[in-house]
Design a protein around this nucleic acid. Structure first.
Length: 491
RNA sequence: GUCUCCUUCGUCUAGUGGUUAGGACAACGGGUUUUCAUCCCGUCAACGCGGGUUCGAUCCCCGCAGGAGAUGCCA
């Protein structure tokens, strides 16, 4: 049997970590087993639907480099792959169920349902859910409602006796008594659109889906879906419920835990390699010690058996660590291209750079690479080059173990030494040695000399290496800043 | 309330009827280094609890506790 899996998100918001993790698992399982990965858009919630979300879905998957074998845009033999274009199919099957007596029309108003719910909560009723008010309407009653112009929903007739079991690859058999299944869930809404349960089951069957990999929050509806497959007389696919992704507090990951949308991560400067690597490791591992996986690796070695059962907490710091690693792995040219948008956004550079500027960007990329966790870090790291905000606080120039007087001397002599040497073309190593000697003369640690120079030149105690900074800034500007620094601490 | 699932360092995880319970991130300490970062070395740190089964349980069984999810004309 050839594997066919699907990622079936609902375009009601931006793609988030949890959804992408599900997509990735499906995708890697498909690839590693020589199967097909299908994308299906479950846009049956017309209230929450948005075009932006749909576009975000496509953007996110393509940014990650996840290509779907069948689905919107690319098409396929089982289309359409957008549920809102399949309404007729769902209606047809829902009505078929009514004819079979497995489902029925319900004319209850939302108000009535609300009231029933309230009542049940108030009475602490053991039984919660729809009271099956319309389960056995006579034909006359039904026609009367129709005459009133009430648009009905179609509900599944859930048996009150017996129990239903489904098998999960990870969890084993999961059984629920039928009486515990939410009584008579709606299959077709009054607006004519199907609910998740109906559309999902029909499409998975019609599209030949072999394995259903979805988050564990769906476990409780597993038996309900089985009931539906049975009502239609269809074969039940293989289930694999994925552990959920949680926030630090153990609750389902959400915005209040930090960024969750892939768009956020992308904008901050996370690389797809890092996201793929880390996110796949949330709830999955190969052997407990291998930690770096490329997309290609995962397309080969991903196995269902290695999925963990327990929910996993999303660790932003570990993602940062992965991202830093992948940034360092890139060539200077790649980094230059990746940081450009951030610099352009700040107005630091313009898209049409001349050769000299391009070369400078490359040097910046080289000097910054090891210092970035995310690409947007380039802004604070490089702003001293493009924007001049001198440090006015004298104390900042003074290194630990030094004093103002020594600092003034260090900046004056060190600065002169630096400028004259650089003008004379002395190699860095030699200049460095001279500065070391200067620190010895002054009786301070090397930083007693370097810190004032650094603060004057880069306007910060934390910066790129001094010689890189000077080279990026230019000799004239460096000289200017050194003089200004001196006048600041002398004042 | 009811139902279902889950439980190894703070976090992600490996693992076995007898192991010094392994790795990674984080944290902390040290080294390299002009700062920061990188890099290197090290330290701290876990089998939820109670019963069984067994010569022996982290591992098998049963309870309990804790956590999570579901209980919508949302998915």
């Amino acid at each position: 049997m050839s594997v066919r899996v699907r990622y079936a998100p609902s375009p009601t918001g931006l793609q988030h970590i949890g959804g992408v993790r599900t997509a990735l698992f499906n995708y890697f399982f498909a690839k590693s087993s020589g199967g097909k990965f299908i994308l299906r858009v479950e846009d049956t919630d017309r209230e929450r639907y948005s075009d932006e979300s749909l576009q975000d879905l496509y953007d996110t998957l393509s940014w990650l480099g996840i290509k779907w074998d069948e689905g919107p845009v690319v098409g396929g033999p089982y289309g359409p792959y957008i549920q809102s274009e399949r309404s007729d199919i769902y209606r047809h099957y829902a009505e078929e169920l009514v004819k079979k007596g497995k489902a029925y029309y319900c004319y209850c108003s939302q108000e009535r349902l609300e009231k029933v719910r309230e009542e049940q909560i108030k009475n602490k009723s053991e039984y919660q859910g729809y009271d099956r008010h319309c389960a056995n309407l006579t034909e006359e009653e039904r026609l009367e409602y129709e005459k009133q112009g009430i648009k009905p929903v179609i509900r599944l007739r859930v048996p009150t006796e017996g129990k239903t079991t489904f098998h999960d690859v990870l969890m084993g058999d999961i059984t629920r008594r039928n009486r515990d299944i939410s009584p008579d869930p709606i299959l077709l809404k009054s607006d004519g659109f199907p609910t998740y349960h109906l559309a999902n089951v029909i499409d998975d069957h019609m599209m030949g889906i072999t394995h259903i990999m979805r988050a564990q929050e769906w476990i409780p509806s597993g038996p309900l879906h089985v009931l539906l497959y049975e009502a239609f007389g269809w074969e039940v696919p293989i289930y694999c419920h994925l552990p959920m992704v949680m926030g630090k507090d153990g609750q389902k990951l959400s915005k209040r835990h930090g960024s969750t949308s892939l768009r956020d991560f992308r904008e901050k400067g996370y690389l797809p390699e890092a996201i793929i690597n880390y996110v796949t490791l949330v709830g999955w591992s190969l052997d407990g010690s291998t930690e770096f996986f490329s997309k290609e690796d995962l397309e080969k070695c991903f196995r269902l058996e290695n999925i963990h059962k327990a929910p996993a907490v999303f660790d932003y710091k570990k993602l940062d660590w992965f991202n830093g690693y992948y940034i360092r792995e890139k060539s200077d040219e790649e980094i230059a291209a990746l940081i450009s948008p951030y610099l352009e956004k700040e107005g630091f550079i313009s898209p049409d750079m001349n050769g000299e500027e391009k070369e400078k960007l490359l040097r910046l990329a080289h000097a910054s690479k090891e210092r970035m966790k995310v690409l947007s870090d380039i802004v604070p790291l490089s702003s001293f080059i493009f924007r001049d905000q001198p440090v006015e606080d004298k104390a900042t120039y003074v290194a630990k173990g030094s004093d103002l007087e020594k600092t003034i001397t260090a900046l004056e002599k060190g600065g002169d030494l630096l400028i004259s040497s650089l003008k004379a073309g002395v190699v860095e190593k030699e200049i460095e040695d001279k500065l070391f000697s200067l620190s010895e003369e002054l009786g301070v640690k090397v930083n007693g000399v370097f810190q004032p120079l650094r603060v004057a030149i880069t306007n910060s105690t934390v910066s790129l290496p001094l010689f890189d900074s000077i080279s990026l800034l230019g000799l004239d500007e460096t000289e200017k800043r050194l003089k200004r620094g001196l006048s600041i601490i002398r004042s």
